[in-house]
Measured scan of single mutants.
Amino acid sequence: MATGGRRGAAAAPLLVAVAALLLGAAGHLYPGEVCPGMDIRNNLTRLHELENCSVIEGHLQILLMFKTRPEDFRDLSFPKLIMITDYLLLFRVYGLESLKDLFPNLTVIRGSRLFFNYALVIFEMVHLKELGLYNLMNITRGSVRIEKNNELCYLATIDWSRILDSVEDNYIVLNKDDNEECGDICPGTAKGKTNCPATVINGQFVERCWTHSHCQKVCPTICKSHGCTAEGLCCHSECLGNCSQPDDPTKCVACRNFYLDGRCVETCPPPYYHFQDWRCVNFSFCQDLHHKCKNSRRQGCHQYVIHNNKCIPECPSGYTMNSSNLLCTPCLGPCPKVCHLLEGEKTIDSVTSAQELRGCTVINGSLIINIRGGNNLAAELEANLGLIEEISGYLKIRRSYALVSLSFFRKLRLIRGETLEIGNYSFYALDNQNLRQLWDWSKHNLTITQGKLFFHYNPKLCLSEIHKMEEVSGTKGRQERNDIALKTNGDQASCENELLKFSYIRTSFDKI
């Protein structure tokens, strides 16, 4: 039985969820670079991206490699990797027998973001014989899940209580170790020597080791999670996991709180800001991140802002960003909400898709409305799209047979046209069989910064309504002859009103 693990408890099935942008060198404390989270699957090609990484700022997932063999891993080693800020997950990587050479110096898994409450997941690794993470000293947050690894031993010899604050939620089941077939031998045991430290858990006094050649490092209890030197002297209180010299914040392997210019500090002093819960960055760093993602459509890219001495992905609820200094300031009234469309555009074809934009005031991208039916549609669209004030790209209304009016965009005031449909149009209306009105132009103002209007096959939309939009939106004169079809717009509506004058002759039985 794995020490510190839980057996036999019912657990939810383990679901495996399925960018080499360097964020800056980590400095003297770390020998390499800070790398983003990685999802490495199918083959070993991307694994080489770990070569210079000291910190993975995010998670590391290595999974679904069915053609790899043990010899493929023999020359692979990433000794610079010290810390993973989120979680480490391995799933069905064939041929991998140990992690001792792959990650010989991995010391800390912070667990800032977890995989279903777990910071370390080893699942269905069919050839893994031992973990071998002999320098792993601290899992700051989260638990361990090690399950269905039929060859995995050296679990009962690990004292997880020396690595985690609590072992109650560890789930370590259905491994070879369960069948008591392992016969784990710690260093020196074969020669009758006791080389590794022994600890007591559940009444068992057991030597602690990761492999037959690597003991588990056990520091004096007084050192807590700070770690200790090879001689057993406690590291500085700002260290986490390990250090090369005692009581020196510049000799830590990793930091308990924050890293700044080669030393570990309790908090980031001005003019620095907390970033990702582990390091200090200056304003320029946060500003660069903001600008890199301002026009990016890459998933996970955030326009970072500053709030409460932190550089964070977005302002919290009730705050909006001051564009001059990136500071989050309290909103006066309802907060603006910028919604970034991942692929640059979004099609609204149902109430469900409209709900995804609920509360958005600025759309960074283009909207395509293609709704053919739905219950209580006008009210639903207004509830979900009615706060949109600005669209950076274009607005396209296409084959939306259920629409009679666009009044559900009740606050839309600006279409920038930074991206144009077919390279020309910022407003595009095609084949809307029941569209009769755009907006009530006596109450609604709309500016279209650039781009043209396109109207074709809107049989109940009168040309007068379209011409009014040209005047109000500032697009009059931009359109070419064929942009607004004269014969297919309003051709099934009563669009022309003329005053009919009647004269009559009164007659009676005795007068003409």
Rank of each mutant, 00 (worst) to 15 (best):
N43Q: 12
I62E: 00
I62M: 10
L63H: 15
K67G: 02
D75L: 13
P79V: 05
M83A: 04
I84Q: 00
T85F: 03
L89V: 01
L90W: 04
G95I: 05
K100I: 07
K100R: 11
D101T: 08
V108F: 03
I109V: 09
R110I: 10
R110L: 10
L114N: 04
F116R: 01
F116W: 08
N117S: 06
A119N: 03
V121N: 04
V121L: 02
V121F: 00
I122C: 08
E124K: 02
R145D: 02
I146W: 00
E151A: 07
C153Q: 01
S161P: 04
S161G: 07
R162D: 05
I163W: 01
I163H: 01
L164G: 14
L164Q: 07
D165P: 05
S166K: 02
S166F: 10
K176L: 07
N179H: 10
E181P: 05
T189V: 14
K191F: 11
K193L: 03
N195H: 06
P197S: 09
T199F: 13
V200C: 06
N202V: 02
G203N: 14
G203D: 15
R208V: 00
W210K: 01
T211R: 01
C215T: 01
Q216I: 01
K217M: 12
V218C: 10
P220Y: 03
P220R: 04
C223S: 01
H226F: 15
L233F: 05
E238Q: 12
E238H: 10
L240S: 12
C243P: 00
T250H: 12
R256C: 03
D261N: 09
G262L: 06
R263H: 10
T267S: 08
P270T: 08
P270V: 13
P271N: 08
Y272R: 03
Y273P: 03
H274G: 12
F275R: 02
V281K: 01
N282W: 15
C293P: 01
N295P: 03
N295S: 09
S296K: 08
Q299R: 05
Q303F: 12
Y304H: 07
H307D: 15
N308W: 10
N309W: 09
C315F: 00
C315W: 00
S317G: 04
T329M: 11
L332Y: 03
L332G: 14
P334S: 13
